[in-house]
């Protein structure tokens, strides 16, 4: 990685994750946004990376614990006595 005055695609790549997480130094952020405004490819990489993260966070991907697994867990922990219907 080099010290060009302007953000290059490679520099953007290195900072992409931090940028998405809002974890980037404001000045770097500004430079990066300037680059993004001019670079279609980087904008696509940013958008699709964000979307990838959104997709894995969707609640559809988070099944609850199956009831039989919960029962066996409580028994294993000798907590059968507290095995009441799961509060929701």
């Amino acid at each position: 990685m080099t010290d060009h005055p302007h953000t290059t695609c490679e520099e953007l790549l290195g900072s992409l994750s931090a940028y998405i997480d809002g974890d980037l130094d404001p000045q770097l952020c500004q430079e990066l946004e300037k680059h993004l405004a001019e670079c279609d490819n980087c904008r696509i990489v940013l958008n699709t990376t964000k979307r990838t993260i959104d997709l894995v966070q969707t609640p559809l991907e988070k099944p609850d614990l199956p009831e039989d697994v919960r029962e066996r867990l409580f028994k294993r922990l000798n907590l059968d006595h507290y095995l009441t219907p799961k509060p929701k």
């Binding site: 990685m1 490679e10 790549l13 290195g14 490819n41 904008r43 696509i44 990489v45 958008n47 699709t48 964000k50 979307r51 997709l55 969707t58 559809l60």
Partner: peptide, 24 residues
Amino acid sequence: EDDTDDLRPTQIVDWSALPEEELL
């Protein structure tokens, strides 16, 4: 490692606007 060489994107296609029902 800070080396991002092998991370360089090869797939540059904007699918981010595909509808949710297609994505999911």
